[in-house]
Design a protein around this nucleic acid. Sequence first.
DNA 1: ATGACTCCCAGTGGGAGA
Length: 255
Amino acid sequence: MKLATWNVNSLAVRLPQLLDWLAANPVDAMVLQETKLTDDKFPHAAIESAGYLVQWFGQKTYNGVALLSRSPAADVVKNIPGHADEQARVIAGTVSDLRVIGAYFPNGQAPDSDKFQYKLQWMTALREWVRSQLALYPKLILLGDFNIAPEDRDVHDPVAWMDQIHCTPQERAHFRGLVELGLCDAFRLFEQPPKSWSWWDYRNLAFRKNQGLRIDHILVSEALRGKVSACAIDKLPRKNERPSDHAPVIVELAD
DNA sequence: ATGACTCCCAGTGGGAGA
């Protein structure tokens, strides 16, 4: 079984690229972030024509998430239950026997901003909800745009990024908090090329110079850890014309 | 260098992203 996550930075713009990517990468399930579409505008028919069922949860202008799957998603949840939020950031469903939680973590903007406080509160709520989900669904996968670079090796210039947004000790502590629930960073189960990033700034020729961050992640529960057979970042879509600034991440689970 | 690019909604500019 293959699953993927991709921050598409506007599904209205990236729909053709998503369909191309799915044709080349026939995953069993996929989560999207930053669809930036209200629910009435979600292009479900095009996605269904590509052979996927889809659940979506969006808003105007910002955020927005979706869950695509070959087989139906059961017990679908949108956002974190009990955590009031104006922003559409989470979509979860059970696909086959797997609990799939797709998440778009807040950016946080700057460590001294109100948005950073929102990010910390959101991450606290997410962690407690994921803890309860793990009790219900031992086979759980949490994937999406975490907006956290967990370690210095996930940052092209750790000195310049030190204590900056995505790299603060508080954000990294939250990432470790998820790991301490029993989740495992699937990407790091394998030897990976050095300077592996999932996001490159649009500005300053960052992709060409390979100056990026690894902020899109796939975390798997203990029950799944032994089944992970591969995990990789697909840089190819970042070479498209009008690319998303993020690349997809794919994980493969043995049956 | 509080920049750069891209997207969105706006409305002939500005916020947000990361």
